[in-house]
Structure formats: structure tokens, C-alpha cells
């Protein structure tokens, strides 16, 4: 039995069957499904676009806030960045710049205030006082605790 003869004998029919009314309904059914999917796709696309725009706005606002915040004078401590390991030469220079431990710190010159005029004024006041007044003043000096501390 030749191949062509065999195939001719069988023909082009198939043993498969189709439910009745299938071909009449499938077109409209498929069109409805296609429309539905197209609408869902468009809705999703719109939703994604809206979300993308919203996310971009939030990102811009955040970046803007960060930039504005950096431009304001900060009350926080400013930490000066230094390399973790200072080169040897720089370290030596820093040591030289620091005051030596035994070195005396520079002291501001003493201010000498002349008290000659004050002494003259006090002598004049005392000479004007009576004996009673002088005794009272002496007693007051002895009893005043603040005067004692000042004398010590």
C-alpha cells in the first residue's frame, strides 16, 4: 500500500467533534473578551502613569526639601571631615603647632591700678570725722563678717 494511496483512503476528515452553535457564538464572545482586556489594559496603563507622576512629584519634593535644608545655616555641630590616617608629615606639623606640656602659657600682663588718689580721699574723709564717728566705724568693721573675709 503506497503512502499516497493510504492517505487518499483515509481522507482529510478528523474524528473530532464540535459542540453545536460553537462557531456562531465564538466571534461575539471573543470580541467581548478582546474589548474587556483592552479596557483593563488602558485602565492599568492610566493607573501606572498616575502613580509614576505622583512618585516623581514626591521624589522632586523630597529632593527640593533636602536641598533647601542644606542651604539653611545649620545649628548642628559641623564635623570636619578628616582622613582616617593623617600623613606623617602633617601629624608632625600638628604636634609642633600644639603647646608643649611644660611650656608656661602666656599670661596677660597685670594691670596696675594706681591707688594713690583713693588713699588721699580716705584720709580726707577720716580727718573730717569726729571721735565718736571714728569709734562707731571701728566697731562696725570689727562686727562685719564680710569685712573679715576681705581682710583675710
Amino acid at each position: 500500500m503506497g503512502k499516497d494511496n493510504l492517505f487518499q483512503e483515509i481522507g482529510k476528515e478528523t474524528p473530532y467533534q464540535v459542540p453545536s452553535g460553537f462557531f456562531e457564538q465564538i466571534s461575539e464572545k471573543t470580541l467581548q473578551e478582546a474589548r474587556h482586556r483592552e479596557q483593563s489594559r488602558k485602565r492599568n496603563l492610566t493607573l501606572w502613569r498616575t502613580m509614576a507622576v505622583a512618585a516623581s512629584l514626591v521624589a522632586f519634593a523630597f529632593i527640593g526639601y533636602l536641598k533647601f535644608d542644606n542651604e539653611k545655616p545649620s545649628t548642628n555641630l559641623i564635623v570636619q571631615e578628616k582622613p582616617a590616617v593623617t600623613p606623617m608629615g602633617e601629624q608632625t606639623q600638628e604636634i609642633f603647632n600644639q603647646p608643649a606640656v611644660n611650656e608656661k602659657p602666656t599670661i596677660a600682663p597685670e594691670i596696675k591700678i594706681s591707688t594713690v588718689k583713693e588713699d588721699e580721699d580716705i584720709s580726707k574723709i577720716l580727718s573730717d570725722l569726729t571721735d565718736e564717728e571714728l569709734l562707731q566705724l571701728a566697731a562696725m568693721v570689727k562686727t562685719d563678717p564680710f569685712m573679715e573675709v576681705a581682710q583675710q
Partner: peptide
């Protein structure tokens, strides 16, 4: 076959 036929034509529509 029905599912694949529908999918084929939906792809065509899109």
C-alpha cells in the same frame, strides 16, 4: 482549542 483560538484573535485585536 477554544482558549487558544480566542487568545489568537485577541492578540490580533490588540
Amino acid at each position: 482549542a477554544e482558549d487558544i483560538l480566542q487568545e489568537t484573535f485577541i492578540n490580533v485585536y490588540r
